[in-house]
Amino acid sequence: MSIFTVASRYAKSLLELAQEQGQLDAVKKDLEQIIAVLKANNEIQAVLKNPIISHDKKRSILLALFDGKANPLIISFFTILVNKGRADILIDIAQAFVREYNQVKGIVNATVLSATALSEENLNELQAKIAQEIGAQVLLNNKVDASVIGGFVLRVGDKQIDASIAGKLQKLEKYFVSQGV
């Protein structure tokens, strides 16, 4: 079974439990912080993925890091994951939880790629237009890539709008090649 499938199943279980206990938003917020901590620390990731390190040691490390700082539901969930030998995919499970949460709440992630960082005003305006167009709450992320040259590339879910200068130049090049110029 793939890591994605396993992570998704555990994430759905945690999501259902958090919903039942009325702690869905709190669990999501804590998991986002936990993802950031784990991603920022390669040593912790290495320990969690190392099959030689005992479950007790992994559990004690996670408790030392997050007990009292994260929702008790998450701490209990971590204990279950470690006992089942799934500490190695903890980040994958947490990320799958956030994806599932967004789906349940009708939140769509979008990315706008631009040559320079967009102003807060431009981002807010674009976010509002996307939300109005798709009828859902939108989390907009701005990524900077100088190769865009100008304009932007917008990705919302599995759709992409390329309004960049680089994209237009590529289309123009393809046209000239197809015409034998």
Rank of each mutant, 00 (worst) to 15 (best):
S2Q: 11
F4V: 15
F4N: 15
T5K: 15
A7V: 05
A7C: 02
S8L: 11
Y10R: 04
A11R: 08
K12E: 10
S13I: 09
S13T: 14
L14I: 06
L14C: 02
L15E: 08
E16L: 14
E16K: 15
E20R: 11
Q21Y: 08
Q23H: 12
D25G: 02
D25C: 03
A26F: 08
D30L: 08
Q33T: 10
I34H: 05
A36Q: 13
L38T: 06
K39V: 07
A40R: 15
N41F: 10
Q45P: 03
A46H: 05
A46N: 09
L48V: 03
K49N: 01
N50V: 02
P51W: 08
P51Q: 06
I52M: 10
I52V: 14
I53K: 00
I53W: 00
H55M: 13
H55S: 13
D56G: 02
K57M: 11
K57L: 13
K58P: 00
F66V: 02
F66R: 07
F66G: 01
A70G: 07
A70V: 11
N71L: 05
P72A: 04
P72C: 02
L73T: 09
I74E: 00
S76I: 04
F77Q: 02
F78W: 04
L81M: 11
N83P: 04
R86A: 00
R86K: 12
D88T: 12
I89T: 04
I89L: 10
L90G: 00
L90R: 05
L90W: 03
I91K: 09
D92V: 09
Q95Y: 05
F97L: 06
R99Y: 13
R99E: 15
R99W: 08
Y101I: 02
Q103N: 14
Q103H: 15
Q103S: 13
Q103A: 14
V104F: 12
K105E: 06
I107F: 07
N109I: 05
T111V: 13
T111L: 05
V112G: 04
V112D: 01
L113P: 05
T116M: 12
A117I: 11
E120Q: 12
E121Y: 11
N122T: 11
L123M: 14
L123S: 05
E125Y: 13
Q127N: 14
Q127V: 06
I130P: 10
G135L: 00
G135F: 00
A136E: 08
K143M: 06
K143E: 14
D145A: 08
A146V: 12
I149E: 07
G150N: 09
V153N: 01
V153P: 02
R155W: 00
V156N: 01
I161W: 09
I161R: 07
G167T: 03
G167I: 01
E173S: 07
E173V: 01
K174E: 14
Y175Q: 15
Y175P: 06
V177C: 04
V177P: 03
S178G: 13
